[in-house]
Design a protein around this nucleic acid. Structure first.
Lengths: 169, 169
DNA sequence: AAATTAATGTTATAATATAACATTGACTTA
DNA sequence: TAAGTCAATGTTATATTATAACATTAATTT
């Protein structure tokens, strides 16, 4: 059962799918990881992670603050940025640099630099695992530069949005 | 002569090199391109491009404004952002998303999405051409997503900085 | 020379992010 | 368990990055 979920292509994020399953799987992994690493899973952290999991769209810090405010949480900027720092540091979330926005990690557990596909029509994001996205640099560059992290964000149109366009025309 | 310059690896940006040559080659290409495309090469645009060419470091819009101000140009934010928009749109400059900073393009002439190597010690940047950096996506992803642009920024330590560190230790 | 358009100038403000310090609450340890 | 410690949250202020909207100037066309 779990195996089937893991094997699904990231492109499912752009399509109709059983999102409740996404949500629950991620939330379970979050709990498990916090327990294992002895990280404090506070109501605020839980709520922000929950907000990031809502759909497969990245959200801005100030959107998060709005939502926190509506739910009775304190909501000055540092509140959001601190929790986001924690989530990113621990590998539970990522920042999409191109849009100054944040998204839950699809492969949580440790810090890493994934590749994102971002649809500019529906704004949905898919995080690709290393297996599905590899940056090939030439030998010379590899030998002359010690890579520590990478920002790889691909912007375009997902299949669902593309089909909608085709139908309209 | 010119051929030798073109063939040099991007990693030269991280080392001591004849920067006057970089500057002149880029400036010549800028002039040539503007002429060919009938773009107006105004004093302001020229100055901003010149600032971006100073060394191989990305600079922020407000740094540009400071420098413009010192040289007697008007220097309110839109001044910088408009020229930067122009330069980026025409393929003469790029934005480094990770650092909200801007850099002259090394392969000017048309809009494109290059790969950048950015040294976090010396802040120097090298723009790689397509030949030296390829993002390999799996077949499924490629078929399900129509790529329009990409942000690829590799952060790490360049060889020069690495060697300095080694010597110190 | 008048009309048009592109570029620059200016004012105001929006959007994103961090610094610095205060308070609370949980956890240790004496 | 009371005192001490530290991590998390709360709060105020401000820094940094970016854009909207409108005015003026300069170049180009008619």
């Amino acid at each position: 059962m779990k195996k089937i979920q893991i094997k699904k292509a990231v492109s499912k994020n752009f399509k109709k799918h059983n999102h409740k399953l996404c949500y629950e799987t991620s939330m379970k992994a979050f709990h498990k990881n916090c327990l294992e690493k002895n990280l404090k899973l506070t109501p605020l952290r839980l709520k922000v992670f929950e907000l990031l999991l809502k759909d497969h769209r990245a959200i801005g810090a100030y959107q998060i603050l709005d939502m926190l405010s509506k739910e009775g949480f304190s909501s000055t900027p540092p509140i959001a940025y601190r929790v986001l720092d924690f989530l990113i540091e621990q590998g539970f979330a990522h920042k999409i640099e191109r849009f100054n926005a944040f998204i839950a990690c699809s492969h949580p557990g440790s810090k890493h630099s994934p590749t994102f596909m971002i649809c500019r029509k529906c704004d949905k994001v898919a995080e690709m695992c290393e297996k599905d996205s590899r940056l090939k640099l030439d030998k010379k560059s590899l030998s002359e530069f010690q890579i520590e992290e990478s920002v790889i964000e691909i912007i375009g149109i997902c299949k669902s949005c593309n089909q909608l366009e085709t139908i309209k025309c």
